[in-house]
């Protein structure tokens, strides 16, 4: 069962990622990215990370991708054009990326001591409590300060996004 689920959703992940590269319209790329992120959520579930699977769907497949599709539609982004720069990047970039992937695959396949994933045996089963309990115990006791700092970061990001995206008063009066 685990093997079938893994191959199904790993295949969906790779297919979505490849489709993201092949599509020339940004909205199609955004929709394939949603496929990738939702399949990754299922893989997180297989790895026993229930909270992260739900957070992946809500934050990534939900919030972030809605933002992306909204901007694609707002800016009315059309098909991308192929230029000289893209051909040069493809010619130099592909061998480099293949080399990186080969190195990574060699390191991973030769690594000693990597175990196997057993379905239903998350990292917290030995404690007899759920994934969420263990996660929140560490997050809200030992890592409370980083957690609060991140909330400040998000506040700053929201203010920054509003400040960047709004028009200046001069521009608006010039339009009138």
């Amino acid at each position: 069962m685990h093997l079938i689920l893994f191959f199904l959703f790993a295949g969906l992940c790779l297919a979505g990622a490849i489709n993201l590269l092949l599509q020339s319209h940004p909205i199609n790329s955004a929709l394939s990215l949603i496929v990738v992120m939702t399949s990754l959520a299922v893989l997180y579930l297989l790895l026993g990370a229930e909270f992260l699977a739900i957070a992946q769907i809500i934050v990534y497949a939900g919030a972030v991708m809605v933002l992306f599709t909204f901007v694609v539609m707002l800016l009315n982004a059309g098909r991308e054009e192929r230029t000289l720069g893209s051909h040069a990047a493809a010619r130099i970039g592909f061998p480099a990326v293949v080399a990186i992937l080969a190195v990574l695959a060699t390191v991973i396949l030769r690594a000693q001591g990597l175990g196997a994933v057993h379905l239903g045996e998350g990292l917290t089963n030995s404690h007899g409590s759920s994934n969420l309990v263990v996660l929140s115990q560490v997050l809200f006791h030992e890592l409370l300060l980083p957690f609060e700092v991140t909330s400040v970061l998000i506040l700053v990001a929201i203010l920054g996004a509003v400040a960047l995206a709004r028009r200046d008063d001069e521009e608006r009066t010039a339009e009138k």
Binding site: H2, F6, A111, G115, H118
Partner: peptide
């Protein structure tokens, strides 16, 4: 069948 971590 178990899935090796290496595949992930």
């Amino acid at each position: 069948h178990d899935v090796p971590i290496a595949w992930y």
